[in-house]
Every structure is written in structure tokens, then in C-alpha cells.
């Protein structure tokens, strides 16, 4: 009975959403802004992957805010778990987990680095690459039973990444009068690894920041907050 009432209420809410989309109508082409991005983005930014171009340069200020939201959530988790510590497991992992933990983090880390570095050429960029690198950290944390060595570097890496992201933005502001202007470095030939201005640098900053925040959440889960 309760489920049925909840179903009716949810149907009402979703019907509102469907009515709102009905008024938009079926999209026939790109919007005005997206048309500009698709037509000019190739020359303006020099990146092949338009999604990375939008995330990093055109909407770079929004990305800075979103990364701050992520930082707030991660620090709330770490704060709660260091004030109210929970026990941690003392169970030894079985041989399969132990072997996987020794072999697989290296290739995953390498592949995460590839995704971050080729963010302007192939699908990827800062956010997916950071998640992949955090998965490698997760694999290490699954097998360990005591403190891990990299935990004390996470805060430093996170703050340095955020600082360099903001500084790269202010570089454009000082040199060309526009926050996160992409033309402060040479644009290069689109399609090569060293091209597209400061997009690879900002991708690296976002990737390090996302990876250290997600790994910080996982380390707090394993070791109860620790010494932040």
C-alpha cells in the first residue's frame, strides 16, 4: 500500500519532467552555443575532443566550482570518520586478492595516466582518468591490513593540484585578460600529443585532484580518517 502511494507520487513527479521535455520538442540540430563550440572550437582551442574542450576551457570556471563541491563532500567524509572512528579489519586477504593486488595496480595506473594525458585526443580527460587512478588505489586498499604509505601524500597532492588549476587560470587573466584563456601556450597542430595549449596541464591538475579526493574517501573508510 505504501509502495503504491509512493509509486503514484513518483509518477506525478516524472510526469512533470515529461511535460517539460514535451514543451522543448524533439531537437532538430545543435543549440546556438553548441553550434559555436562545434564550428569554432577546433580552431579556437585546438582540441579534437570537444567534450574535454568544453569541460576544461569554455566551462573551466564551472569545473573549478564543481571540483570544490567534490572537495567539500570528501572532507566531510574524512572529518566524520576521524571524529567517530570505526574499527578496521584484521583479516588476511586470500591468495587471489594478494596476487591481484601485487600485479594489477601498475597497469591500471599506467592506463589512467594515458587517459589523462590523451584527454584532448581520445575519450577521457581529467575526471575519468582520476577515477581510474583511484580504482588502482582501491585495489591496493582492498588487500592491505595496515596503514598504507601513500595516505600521507594525498592532502599535499590535492592542494597542489587545486592551486595549480587556479594559477593556470590567472595566467590567462594576466597575460590576455581572460580567465583560463587557452592561447597562453602555443596551440600546435591538432591531433598531436603536445598541442591544444594548456588543456593537458589542466587535465592533469583535475585528474590529480579527483584521484586524491576519491582515494582520500577510500583511505578514510579503511583506516578511520587517520591523521589529516
Amino acid at each position: 500500500m505504501r509502495t503504491f502511494i509512493a509509486f503514484l507520487l513518483a509518477l506525478y513527479l516524472v510526469f512533470f519532467a515529461a511535460a517539460a521535455f514535451e514543451s522543448f520538442g524533439e531537437p532538430q540540430g545543435l543549440g546556438r552555443i553548441a553550434e559555436h563550440y562545434a564550428a569554432e572550437g577546433f580552431e579556437e582551442v585546438g582540441a579534437i575532443n570537444l567534450v574535454t574542450a568544453v569541460v576544461v576551457t569554455y566551462r573551466g570556471l564551472d569545473t573549478l566550482g564543481e571540483v570544490s563541491v567534490l572537495f567539500t563532500a570528501a572532507s566531510a567524509v574524512i572529518l566524520l570518520l576521524s571524529v567517530f572512528p570505526l574499527g578496521k579489519p584484521a583479516n588476511k586477504p586470500s591468495s587471489i586478492v594478494l596476487l591481484t593486488m601485487k600485479v594489477l595496480p601498475g597497469p591500471i595506473l599506467l592506463f589512467g595516466g594515458y587517459i589523462i594525458a590523451h584527454g584532448h585526443l581520445t575519450p577521457g580527460g581529467g575526471f575519468p582518468g582520476g577515477a581510474v587512478v583511484a580504482s588502482a588505489a582501491l585495489l591496493v586498499l582492498l588487500g592491505c591490513t595496515q596503514e598504507v604509505g601513500f595516505a600521507k601524500w594525498l592532502t599535499f597532492a590535492e592542494s597542489m593540484a587545486g592551486f595549480s588549476f587556479a594559477m593556470l587560470g590567472f595566467w590567462g587573466l594576466l597575460k590576455l585578460g581572460q580567465f583560463l584563456n587557452n592561447s597562453v601556450l602555443f596551440l600546435g597542430i591538432p591531433g598531436q600529443l603536445l598541442s591544444a595549449g594548456i588543456i593537458p596541464l589542466i587535465s592533469a591538475a583535475i585528474g590529480v585532484k579527483v584521484a586524491s579526493e576519491l582515494s582520500g574517501i577510500l583511505v578514510a573508510y579503511r583506516c578511520g580518517g587517520g591523521k589529516e
Partner: peptide, 29 residues
């Protein structure tokens, strides 16, 4: 062919979920 990157990530990481479930079932999470 560029979309094959996605498949590579998925094939590399989908193993992790099953490994985590196995680690949970042996009582170590």
C-alpha cells in the same frame, strides 16, 4: 575505432567489483 578506449577501461575495471564482493564474502571489508 576511437571508441575502443571505453571498452578497454571497462574490461580492465569490471574485475574490481567482483573482487570486492569476494573480499566482502571472506569478511575483510
Amino acid at each position: 575505432s576511437m571508441l575502443l578506449d571505453v571498452v578497454l577501461v571497462y574490461a580492465l575495471l569490471s574485475f574490481l567489483g567482483v573482487l570486492a564482493i569476494a573480499r566482502y564474502l571472506e569478511g575483510g571489508l
